[in-house]
Amino acid sequence: MSVIELKNINKYFGSGISKVHVLHDVNFSANRGELILVVGPSGSGKSTFLTIAGGLQTPTSGEVIVEGKPIAQLSTAQRDKLRLNQIGFVLQSYSLVPYLKVKEQFTFVNKVKRQGNLNEAELAGLLKQLGIEQLTNKFPGELSGGQTQRVAIARALFANPDIVLADEPTAALDSARVAEVGKLFKELAETRDKAVVVVTHDTRLMQFADKAYRIMDGKMTETSVTKAAAE
């Protein structure tokens, strides 16, 4: 069963003559253990798709189903809970609280979400897997772009969500780092049994994906992984 599913999603912004149709009948599903890529150019609707999938915006029509439950039926508080417990966001920037040391980012999550987070040993394992175990006493301002991104990934995984949604996680990284993050997402999806959804315009990530979608002017089509990578 898919852990997250979008059915016939349409999203319009504005009204009257300024009305824009940003997502057209989008269908999407993701399973645990998979790295799913959504690739498209700037303005194609990737972020809109991701925020709808994460319950941050409501679609004009269509259904978002997380673990079998349509999220349209949830209250604001329940949606907060869903994002706290089942969804981990990794964003291009601002993902970390600037005045918390790396280890305190996790302490803070523990304070807000008291159960179901990784325990100390698991966190140590995760930090090791990400290669950031030495950075726990640093503030985000003291980290490089790649280190920041990996800490943000750790932050998202710490709450042990079923789904990880990442928006342009490689935007600030060079090619070598891109490959590293791609591998890492793939590995995290497999070893930790998560559905990892990455939206990006960066086709270099294609080779690591289990499944890929192409989004163009708000229309989403599934595409073969190898074909996309070849472009």
Binding site: G54, L56, A77, D80, K81, L82, R83, L84, N85, I87, G88, F89, L91, Y94, S95, V97, V112, K113, R155, A156
Partner: peptide, 10 residues
Amino acid sequence: AVLRAQGIPA
């Protein structure tokens, strides 16, 4: 905003 996205209650 990011913390809200991450599900931290308002």
